[in-house]
Design a protein around this nucleic acid. Sequence first.
DNA 1: TCCATGACTTCCG
DNA 2: ACGGAAGCCATGG
Length: 107
Amino acid sequence: MNDENFFEKVYAIAREIPPGRVTTYGAIAEALGTKGSARMVGYAMNGSATVTPPVPAHRVVNRTGLLTGKRAFQGESLMAELLRNEGVEVINDQVVNFRHLFWNPLK
DNA sequence: TCCATGACTTCCG
DNA sequence: ACGGAAGCCATGG
């Protein structure tokens, strides 16, 4: 059981994301060793809201820096607001300078 | 065991 | 450059 559950791994990395930084599902999936399971990363994040300790899922976006998971949050713009609160500028659900704010879990 | 779904990613037109 | 379709992996029914 729980031998490094896939979800647990995703949560662990997501919690390691420093504030003011963002990462992509593919990067996390690659860090897990399953680069092809980028979709699973998002799938796991879907349950992150019910997991403890809470996971900063708002720091996780797709490879384009688009807030694809914003709909999973309570507010439609809550995810963008959370990122802005950390100093990340978000426009039209798109992270500005995403490439510069990108944080690599492998690093 | 097989089919269907999904906070993604990449390729083709 | 933009839009649509296919591919991959893990979970649930």
